[in-house]
Write a protein that binds this DNA or RNA. Sequence first.
DNA 1: GTAACCAGTATAACGAAGTATACCAGTATG
DNA 2: CATACTGGTATACTTCGTTATACTGGTTAC
Lengths: 129, 129
Amino acid sequence: MEDKKRLKLIKEVLASPRNQKEEVMALQDAIYVIGGKWKLPIINSICNGNKRFRDIERSIPGITTRMLSKDLKEMEANQLVKRTVLPTSPVTVEYTATDYCRSFGDIILEMIKWGKQHRERVIRTPAKS
Amino acid sequence: MEDKKRLKLIKEVLASPRNQKEEVMALQDAIYVIGGKWKLPIINSICNGNKRFRDIERSIPGITTRMLSKDLKEMEANQLVKRTVLPTSPVTVEYTATDYCRSFGDIILEMIKWGKQHRERVIRTPAKS
DNA sequence: GTAACCAGTATAACGAAGTATACCAGTATG
DNA sequence: CATACTGGTATACTTCGTTATACTGGTTAC
């Protein structure tokens, strides 16, 4: 049984070229960063000029405080947004997109293009065999 | 001048209030189609030349038979992959990427690029600046 | 003084996504 | 005859994203 496992492992290792694993990891990183239901709408909202927590919240129908808070934290950790506390009389918090976030522009553009084509295609194609 | 055009387009896409809703929908469509942990690695594997079920499975470390089977079915339904049964003596099954799927190539490449940069960046930067 | 705004946190629960493990029929190999 | 390959399916379980609801401490306005 040990031999069996070992042989299987050897086969696995031999079957995958070296950099493939790295590419899969990179892909999954990117998926993780923009994955989930709300991150892209949040990016979109912030890039659209919304800076305050409640403004962003109100601009995205259906989102809860908890999800917005959680995603903003993750995105801050991933350096996609910058959180700034302003020393106004009731402290206000500003969220802004980083240049790094905007470096996602190419991907977002491609995905928008693709998503639109896909929608058209799926609507036009009822079933296929 | 290419960059200028691109930047202008990005700005339009990210900042235009009118098409915002449609674009977020398109984005979420794209995320839905390629979402989850394994779909992009699967596309990548098939585009890398793997055709057989077990070959694809072995090329993606960590994936289970169940997830591969499930995702391949969804991707077939979304016309991203074509499944062909060959009348060989033990029947073999071939999975191939559709042209439609290959139209995703640019996005995958961009995401791999971005993911690699991101990993480097997050590893190198303990706190933000 | 109480109502409403701000920027969130706390707690619990739900359901989908993903994991683990075993198993199937059919075919070839030793 | 046993083993291992093929392309998967079945069942049970766990994890995690998401939702729902309530609450906090501080501040301004009525």
